[in-house]
């Protein structure tokens, strides 16, 4: 248990240091609210995601590295499906697309099943400004208290963080 908490703390510190190079967002601070329409046009609010760990994935269909990362996120979503079911974990995709048709087509092609939101304003998106995004792909992990717990983790580091976070929660 102690080892897991220590590992989680180290991960938080590492990501916090990484953050200093990425912009003014910091781990521990409250996640800026995201109020954007879903793909089907219904409104979405980040605050409505209650209780669990949320991975906010900033991406766009025009961003090749982002598109390349989607199958990895899909694998994570499937791996942590029990946690998703129990509302302990979820993913929200925030797209910086401009064209709704292209966005929808890409989501369908990649068979993305988690929530997708966008104001279709490209780099002028309010979310891109609020989260001080300089390049894509970019992500943040937000805990149940709406605090940012990690910034811009990808691949194995992302998977390990989610795994350890969820394990620590069930202890």
């Amino acid at each position: 248990m102690m080892y897991r908490i220590l590992a989680l703390l180290i991960l938080c510190l590492v990501t916090g240091n990484g953050l200093a190079q990425n912009g003014p967002l910091k781990t521990g601070q409250a996640a800026p609210e995201i109020n954007l329409p879903r793909l089907d046009g219904t409104p979405f609010a980040l605050r409505s995601m209650k209780g669990g760990l949320v991975l906010i994935d900033f991406w766009a269909s025009w961003c090749a590295p982002c598109v390349k990362e989607q199958p990895q996120l899909k694998a994570l979503y499937e791996k942590f499906a029990p946690a998703v079911k129990q509302q302990q974990f979820d993913i929200v995709g925030v797209s910086l697309d401009k064209d709704k048709r292209t966005w929808a087509k890409t989501v369908a092609r990649l068979k993305i099943s988690w929530t997708q939101v966008s104001d279709l304003k490209f780099w002028k998106s309010q979310a891109a400004r609020d989260y001080h995004i300089e390049e894509l792909p970019f992500n943040v992990l937000v805990n149940g208290q709406n605090k940012i717990v990690a910034i811009n983790l990808h691949g194995k580091a992302l998977e390990a963080f989610i795994q350890q976070y969820l394990e620590a929660q069930t202890q």
Partner: peptide, 9 residues
């Protein structure tokens, strides 16, 4: 301008 040259398709 999507991304750096090495990752741009």
């Amino acid at each position: 301008g999507c991304c750096p040259f090495d990752r741009c398709p």
